[in-house]
Design a protein around this nucleic acid. Structure first.
Lengths: 322, 322
DNA sequence: AATATTTAGTGAAGCGATTCACTAGATTAA
DNA sequence: TTAATCTAGTGAATCGCTTCACTAAATATT
């Protein structure tokens, strides 16, 4: 392993001079000739700065941490993709950690905090009281699913719009009795109600159970005095399960009932019929979170980022003529 | 930031003694009393070893790199999950890089090589001639989809078994004309043929087009003089598309035709009917790859790991009585 | 009792890079 | 001519940790 002093010796200069040149901080004046000699020596010896040494001296590691809920599934992986892209552009590396529960979450926080990373991006899965302590220790950026969390900078998708878009679309297609699973998120409900207000005679039927699967939701819907004509779930999985459940019960989607999901997962293309869903811009979410973190690391002022979801029309909603 | 010498001072011992205790290397004898004092001081001061310092002293960074094809989708993310778990257990961190093409792949290799990580796990997407140069520089482990690549240690799923299991299952369920898409992998074909040999009167109908989508494959099958009763694709996506295509053409799966996929993606649960598929142990693949890498980093001899896939029965194959 | 061995513990030299404080020589200013 | 200012460059301290080489005291061995 070539070290900086190898380079310096070879170039016939002092260690510090070599350091100044390698780091091309314009601060220190170094003669053009010496500069060239050092650079040449560095390439000849195939020199790569040792990050451990640099980190120790500088207190900066050019690494960012990310703590995510178990990343099975495409949701998190697309966010990560966006994150990685920005960070790599800035020649930062990403250290990845995942957690399965709150305990593990804090464990990983501590793990990363001890690693002297320059910043941390976290995506909490649970209700996170506070992270102020961590935030004071290093720049932090939040990736929240929808509703914002205290004063830490964050990137999120506009949760208000998700169900607004879905319900508005259903109304436009003539539906008036709509079953909704909100997963306990008040924003989701508000969005739906905002859309419902625009049209007269709409009935939103709220499924209280946030963890119901597709079969459960469908059976609940069918048991209503006036069964809904459309089902809006809180995630694509439930929606996909609901389609499968309908199939098993001899019902046809969208002829007998319409379904609309949330997230825009890849498998929306694979259900029969293909699942109409509210797409969340996940890659962008990661990308923006990375940008925000880099800005904070450099000490800039930052503003939260709120991204807009959109509706991707497929085949699971039918038009009801009235 | 508390440092080790803070801890030592507080415990009233020398720096080195503290170091020995913190690292619990049984090598050095330290009195039980001093040991307790040091440990107590460490917790009281909330001490976390600074890895930059440790890395510098040890010549090890305790970071492993991973270079994967773009990780959209659950395939790679589950592998990563396994990887992360082993590495974290060994208090290693994972630096993640992804690539979209061969050029980018080499770029990331260089990036990571310059970071002085302790080892590298790569999952090539394309035909990789050689990595000997990299392998000489740092421990390397391959994650290959199926067929092995030169002499570098690797972890893979037994490609021979995938179609063997699928075809055997179809035969057991009475199918005799089976359409197969092998995606250009000779192992897949061999496996299928090996299973076919065990029963008389079997016709394997090979789809040459490796990139065909579900609709194309179905139409091709229906156009055969004697259409197959079962379709075996090279991935779950194609299988899911095929089910959707059948639905659109007014055919019922599994009554009119049976379908079997490969990979065991999460969305197999979301198709209608749910898709029977050959599950690949992806989490384990990542886990084993991590173990292999750690072993190599510690200089142990290693053996390649070959994992077995298995069939997960769902609802997309019907039994044909004969 | 004298010697050998074990136990418990310490000092200090690195690991590789950064950066402050400093200098000799050249140039400019007064 | 002398003092002031620049330029190009260096030495050495420092970051936090590991580990070799060493010691003093206690215990065991003969």
């Amino acid at each position: 392993m070539t070290t900086l002093s190898d380079v310096a010796r070879r170039a016939g200069v002092g260690l510090s001079t070599a350091s100044y040149v390698i780091n091309k901080t314009g601060l220190h004046k170094v003669g053009a000739e010496a500069q060239a000699r050092i650079l040449a020596a560095a390439t000849e010896l195939d020199y790569h700065p040792n990050i451990a040494g640099r980190a120790l001296a500088k207190g900066r590691t050019f690494m960012a941490g990310a703590i995510f809920p178990t990343m099975m599934g495409s949701f998190t992986s697309e966010i990560l993709q966006g994150l990685e892209d920005v960070l790599n552009q800035a020649s930062y590396s990403l250290i990845l950690c995942t957690y399965h529960n709150e305990n593990e979450f804090w464990g990983k926080c501590r793990l990363l905090a001890g690693k002297q990373i320059d910043g941390l991006i976290i995506m909490p899965d649970f209700k996170l009281k506070t992270c102020q302590e961590l935030n004071e220790r290093m720049p932090l950026v939040f990736l929240t699913k929808s509703s914002g969390t205290d004063e830490i900078p964050h990137v999120r998708v506009d949760g208000d719009m998700i169900n607004f878009l879905a319900v508005r679309y259903l109304l436009e297609h003539g539906h008036r009795r709509i079953a909704i699973q909100c997963g306990g998120d008040p924003q989701r409900l508000e969005g739906a109600e905002r859309a419902a207000k625009e049209v007269a005679g709409v009935r939103l039927i709220l499924l209280e159970e946030p963890t119901a699967n597709g079969m459960q939701m469908l059976k609940w819907g069918l048991a209503q005095p006036e069964p809904p004509t459309a089902y809006l779930t809180c995630g694509d999985s439930t929606a996909a399960e609901l389609i499968a459940a309908a199939y098993e019960l001899g019902l046809k989607v969208p002829d007998d009932l319409s379904v609309i999901g949330v997230n825009g997962e890849k498998f929306c293309e694979y259900t029969s019929p293909r699942l109409t869903s509210i797409t969340q811009p996940r890659y962008e979410q990661g990308y923006e979170a990375g940008k925000l973190l880099l800005a904070r690391i450099d000490g800039h002022e930052t503003k939260d980022v709120i991204l807009q979801p959109w509706l991707t029309e497929r085949k699971s909603v039918k038009t009801i003529l009235r």
